[in-house]
Simulated assay, not measured.
Amino acid sequence: MRARERRVIEAVAACLGPAPDPRLLAAAIGTAAGATGCALVVAGERYQWGEGGQWLEQVVTHGGEPQGVLAIAPESVGPMPGVAAVLGLPLAVIRLTTETDRLRRDGDAAARRLVDDRWRAAAEMEQERRGLERDLHDGAQHHLVALRMRLALVEHTGRGVDDLLDRLDTAERVLIDTAGGVLPVALVTGGLAAALRAELASHTDVTLDIDELRRRYPSVVESAVYFVCMEAVNNAHKHAPGAAITLSARDSYRGLEFTVTDNGPGFVVRSSSGLRNLTTRAADVGGTVEITSAPGKGTQVSGFVPL
C-alpha cells in the first residue's frame, strides 16, 4: 500500500464516529491525499471539498452493494482501492441515515397534507351545512311564515282551506328542493326577476318594482340576492305584520342594486339584531347590505353587488 493511501486511511479513521460527517470525510481525504478536490456522492447527495477538474471516480461498496462514489481531483492522484474499501461501512451508515431522514420528511409532509385535507374537508362540510341552513332560513321559512298568516286567517274566517293546502304543498316542495341543494326553477331558467315574481306576485302586501331588472348575473350572485330579498320580506312579514312592503331591484352601470322597504313599526338596528345572514350572504359574492330603521319609521334593507 502506498504511503499516500495509508495517510488517507489514517485520516479517514480519525474522522469516524457514530454518525460520520461526509463533508469532514471529503476534506480529510482530500487533504491527506494532496488533492485539489474530493467529493463523496451518497444517496443522490454530493458532499464536496475543494475544486474539481478531471475527476477520478471509484465506486464504494459494502456487503457487495454499492454505497456511494469517491471522486478525487486531479486524476493524477490515482485510484485508492484501500481507501474505497475502508469507506464502505461509513458510506453505508451515511446512506441509511440520509434515506431515513428523507423518508421521515416525506412522511411528515404526507401527514401534514392529510391533516390539511381533513381540515379542508371539514371546512367545506361546515360551509355546506351553513349554506343549507341559510337557504332553509331565507327561502323555506318565507313559506312557513306565509302559512302561519294564512292559517290565522282561516281560523278567523273559516275560509281559504284550499289555498292553505296549496301553500302547504308549496312549502313542502321548497323544503325538499332546498335540502337537496336545488335552486328554484324560475331562478335557474328565468333569472332573478322571474324568481321574485314567481314567489312574491301573489302576496297582496308586497309591491314589486323590478321592471328595470333585465340583466342576467352569475348563478351564485342571483341566488345570493334572491335569498337576501326573501329573508328581508320574511322579516317584514314576521316583525311588521300588515305593513306594506316594496321590493325594488334594478340594473345599473355599476352592478345590481336592490331594496326591500316596509312601513312597519321599525326598530333600533344593532349588530346582533339577527340580520347577520343578510350581510354574510351578500359578502360571499362581493356585495354589501345595509339595514336602516328607526322606531316608527319603518325599515329598509338596501343591497348592492358590483359587476
Rank of each mutant, 00 (worst) to 15 (best):
D166L: 15
L168D: 11
L168H: 14
L168N: 13
D169R: 15
T170D: 09
T170P: 03
T170C: 09
T170A: 13
A171C: 11
E172R: 15
E172M: 12
E172Y: 10
E172K: 13
R173H: 10
R173D: 08
R173F: 06
R173P: 03
V174D: 01
V174Q: 01
L175H: 10
I176Q: 14
I176E: 15
I176C: 10
I176H: 14
D177K: 05
T178P: 05
T178E: 06
A179E: 13
G180W: 09
G181I: 09
L183M: 10
L183E: 09
V185Q: 12
V185Y: 13
V185E: 15
A186Q: 08
A186L: 04
A186C: 07
L187N: 02
L187T: 05
V188E: 12
V188D: 05
T189N: 12
T189E: 13
G191Q: 08
L192R: 02
A193W: 03
A193V: 08
A193Q: 07
A193M: 04
A195V: 04
L196H: 00
L196R: 00
L196N: 01
L196F: 01
R197W: 06
A198R: 04
A198G: 02
A198Q: 04
E199L: 05
L200E: 03
A201L: 00
A201D: 07
